[in-house]
Amino acid sequence: MRITPASELSARTQKLQALMQGAGLDAVLMLQSADLFYFTGSIQQGVLYVPAAGEPLYMVRKDHGRARMESGLKEVVPFKSPRYIPEVLADFGYAMPKTAGMELDVLPVGLFGRFQKVLEGCVISDATPLIRTVRAVKSDYEIEILKDAALQVDQVCKRAREVITVGMTDIELAAELEFTARKAGHQGLTRMRGFNSEIFYGHVFSGADSAAPAFNDTPLGGLGLNPYVGQGASYKRIEANEPIIIDFTGAFDGYIVDQTRVFCIGGLPDPLAKAYEDMLRVQDLAKEIARPGVAWGELYDRCHDLACEMGYADHFMGAAGAQVSFIGHGIGIEVDEFPFVARGFKDQVLEDKMVFAFEPKAVYPGLGAVGIDNTFWVAPDGLTHLTFSDQELAVL
């Protein structure tokens, strides 16, 4: 188990403070778990107060002792409720902020109202874009953890080759692979930031179920076990000559990678076999053109155009009517981070050591889905693989 080094926390805070100063913010207050982990090294119930200059204050209600043990921040202080924030700030020589940022994309309205009362007279704006900008570029420390997460999903793929048989259900296969991942140190939780966005270890489904649409903002959904879950593996039995999708996360020491591989027993129908090879061509194009300075939206447009030129306009990234408007997404301590390889992001550009998953997929209702998904980090000379399992269609 890693404890985030104090030097990492300091560097992250300094990057955020530089952005805050540019945005005219006196302070940022964070409450969301992933953001707390990133900037404090712990996830305890409380508030992180980051001033535009000076030491951050991690005010913890429960559990202060554990926060003190896990966090490398200098100031980790106990407090009872948000109404004591002015008192704590005064104790450390900080005036009440006149402008502050909060995580308005995820903060519940009722809780926001409580902080408005505490910060009476303070103009509160959304700090989420600043926070996500800092988190988008990974350090060497973070990339090493992501490599460990990639080892997990490789073990999952190797186990899939050993256990897939005709007649086993998708949920039985998922259970086998989740067991493998858990033994390899998978943390169990796979965090997502988007409202009502949820995922477990990943998705495992076969045949027509792999093309079943679902509510989640992903190209593949699956039927799931019941409407309460509404995604992922079901009780469907695996048959020969159909795609078996292993779309799995590795999650280790707080960091996540995403990888998809396609398996089958005996082979695939020609349209699906060809589509799989063509999705590899889309990935190859991304690897060819993605460099620091390339706009997220440009990468999307060129890869989307290639898929359409190859005849997948009604199948790329979902079936017609259920297609998503992205091909890739940033990933780190949450699945849905910056950068977004998505339609419309013309002004945001890739930077050195940004990390994202790229997942071109083709979906055929009633037949199944195929595709590839790998996690990369952006290097000056192109994309560098983090996930590394064999990309060939796995014919068992």
Rank of each mutant, 00 (worst) to 15 (best):
A23M: 00
A23Y: 00
G24S: 05
G24M: 06
G24F: 02
L25H: 02
L25C: 02
L25W: 02
D26Q: 07
D26F: 02
A27S: 11
L29W: 05
S33F: 02
S33N: 11
S33L: 05
A34F: 02
A34V: 04
D35V: 07
L36N: 15
L36V: 04
Y38S: 11
G41F: 01
S42C: 01
I43L: 08
I43P: 07
Q45G: 14
Q45Y: 13
G46S: 10
L48G: 15
L48S: 15
V50P: 14
P51T: 11
A53D: 15
A53F: 12
A53V: 08
G54S: 14
E55M: 10
E55F: 06
Y58K: 04
Y58A: 09
M59Q: 05
V60T: 13
R61M: 14
D63A: 12
G65M: 06
G65N: 07
R66V: 03
A67G: 11
R68H: 07
M69R: 14
G72Y: 00
G72C: 06
L73G: 11
L73V: 12
L73C: 11
K74R: 13
K74G: 09
K74I: 12
V77E: 08
V77D: 06
P78R: 12
F79N: 06
F79H: 06
S81M: 04
S81K: 01
P82I: 01
R83K: 05
Y84C: 01
Y84Q: 07
Y84K: 04
I85R: 06
I85Y: 09
P86S: 08
P86G: 03
E87Q: 10
E87T: 09
E87Y: 08
V88C: 00
V88F: 00
L89R: 05
L89W: 10
D91T: 08
F92I: 04
F92S: 04
F92V: 01
G93E: 07
Y94W: 06
M96E: 12
M96W: 04
P97F: 02
K98T: 07
T99V: 00
A100R: 13
A100S: 12
G101E: 09
M102H: 13
M102K: 10
E103H: 04
L104H: 08
D105F: 00
D105N: 01
V106K: 04
L107E: 08
L107Q: 09
V109M: 10
G110L: 14
F112M: 15
G113M: 09
G113A: 14
F115H: 03
F115T: 02
Q116W: 01
V118D: 11
V118Q: 09
C122M: 14
V123R: 14
I124S: 04
S125H: 00
S125A: 01
T128E: 07
